[in-house]
């Protein structure tokens, strides 16, 4: 069965035909060619497919494209604005929050969810928030530092803009 869905992805509206059984992650990667969202475990454990849907982090391998009809989706490609890295992207760069980089898009999208709900998280808050995202390289310490960097940077930007 084919369905027509309307979604807004990274600010751009799309009207697409998808198969009912099409998973959101395949829609994003294969149909929209947004390959920054990765498929890791494919069993909703590893978090590398995390995207934001209406402001909430969701594992896109465990959701049908049809379920996203009418929603606003943000993927890793939608974070940088006018060539400027998002503070979280900058944090992962500055603090060496990645090695192979496979988990990074999902890690960053989950951290976006965290900082939107809790702009000044403690180290424990960060570790708790990232429980659904696996990294097999870094040992997580630099990932935590990257999120702390972003939290501080976003606060600084907010102060500067007042």
């Amino acid at each position: 069965m084919n369905l027509t869905i309307q979604v807004e992805v990274n600010g751009k509206k799309h009207k697409s035909t998808v198969e009912a059984r099409q998973l959101l992650v395949y829609y994003l990667r294969d149909q929209l060619r947004l390959t920054g969202t990765h498929i890791g475990c494919d069993t909703s454990s590893c978090g590398s497919c995390t995207v934001m849907i209406d402001g909430m982090a969701v594992k896109s391998c465990t959701m049908l494209a049809a379920q996203a009809d009418g929603c606003a989706i943000t993927t890793i490609e939608g974070l940088a604005k006018k060539g400027e890295l998002h503070p979280l992207q900058e944090g992962f760069h500055q603090e060496h929050g990645l090695q192979c980089g496979f988990c990074t898009p999902g890690m960053i999208m989950t951290a976006v969810d965290l900082l939107s709900k809790n702009p000044e998280p403690t180290e424990m808050d960060i570790r708790h928030a990232l429980e659904g995202n696996f990294c097999r390289c870094t040992g997580y310490h630099n990932i935590v530092r990257a999120v702390q960097f972003a939290s501080a940077k976003m606060k600084e930007m907010e102060v500067a803009s007042v």
């Binding site: 978090g47 909430m56 982090a57 594992k59 989950t110 969810d113 965290l114 928030a129 429980e131 659904g132």
Partner: peptide, 9 residues
């Protein structure tokens, strides 16, 4: 329950 992403959905 689960993790952030699971609790969101």
């Amino acid at each position: 329950i689960g993790d952030v992403q699971v609790r969101n959905k």
